[in-house]
Design a protein around this nucleic acid. Structure first.
Lengths: 178, 178
DNA sequence: TCCTTTAACGACCGATCGGTCCAGATATTG
DNA sequence: CAATATCTGGACCGATCGGTCGTTAAAGGA
């Protein structure tokens, strides 16, 4: 997974995968089929990890505002420094392959949908608890937050997301909660 | 430019470029040097176009709030339907090459910086005109808006940005202006 | 112990990659 | 019109791509 994450699909050559898996060519093809299948496996694992984290942070049994704060803070941290420059496998894959690879497209679309749904759910719970500012629609706000964090990962491929970003994330959430 | 935009750097092979430029291999190399130089040229043109548009939309002589609205609306439109699925050359390049190509990194970083600066400037002017909501910091809000639009381009690689997105963009801006 | 079965290995494959270079067409000039 | 300069096209190059396959080593059972 790591090698695809660091380099992207096309830029990852068989020798890279062999080095990463410590397998020989033959064994790798016996175990995973082909490069594309192996990539799909890696992508699935990456997405699983992300969804798991999402389910923890935005757990319905926890306070939704705390959850949202943790969700945003997690993204800010993950986009800082070296981690940030590594980027995000989902976004890189979306830009590189989503348009021409149906298997990939399905996975990415579903992931974004799940994330937006989880965030929207947390916002709805916050609204029900009277913790949202007036006139905030959970669906719209969820899309805003998701776009914000994904955009974060993009711009922090080049510029490190420093203190400003943390402040921006806080400021964004503060616009929604009361 | 179009072929790099549609396919990405690595996935664009010489034959694609020959077809797109209607040049032969020899002529193309005489005119542009190599694939990398040609790509940089395409990237520069793409960025130039974007900056030009930015300068028009956020022209200091026009109303900053109108400008910001046009800026957001432009991105939403550009991420809808087929245009959206084509994605954004800057983002795709950022994810694909920024980490390993200094020339590319410089261009992308500078572009994001310019965009954020233009947006922050418009927000500052809006604040000076008393059009911003209480407690809104132009620098933070600028980062939020930039991340939002870039995130928009990412998620609309798979899901079409429909009416919800338009509403989200409006909702976001409405949180900042009074 | 020896034979069978399984799994790992890397040499090898055709295709295609980015890049070079020369033959021939075209245009220019005296 | 002829000689020269310019440019273009595509054959060709070594390297590397993703993928296959025969060989060899290891493991399991009788």
């Amino acid at each position: 997974m790591g090698v695809f994450w660091s380099r992207g699909y096309h830029a990852t050559a068989l020798p890279d995968l062999l080095r990463a898996t410590k397998l020989s060519r033959g064994s790798l093809y016996a175990a995973f089929g082909d490069k594309h299948s192996l990539f799909l496996r890696a992508l699935d694992r990456y997405i699983d990890d992300a969804v798991t984290r999402l389910n923890i942070e935005l757990d319905p049994r926890k306070d939704p505002v705390d959850g949202l704060r943790a969700y945003l803070a997690g993204y800010v941290d993950r986009t800082s420094g070296a981690h940030g420059r590594r980027g995000c496998l989902v976004i890189a894959t979306a830009m590189e392959l989503a348009g021409r690879d149906a298997d990939v497209n399905r996975r990415i679309a579903s992931f974004f949908k799940v994330m937006e749904a989880r965030v929207a759910d947390a916002l709805s719970r916050a609204k029900a608890a009277g913790k949202l500012a007036d006139g905030v629609d959970p669906a719209n706000a969820a899309r805003i937050l998701v776009c914000f964090v994904e955009g974060l990962r993009v711009i922090s491929k080049t510029a490190s997301a420093g203190a400003i970003t943390h402040a921006a994330a806080d400021a964004l959430l503060d616009r929604f909660i009361r």
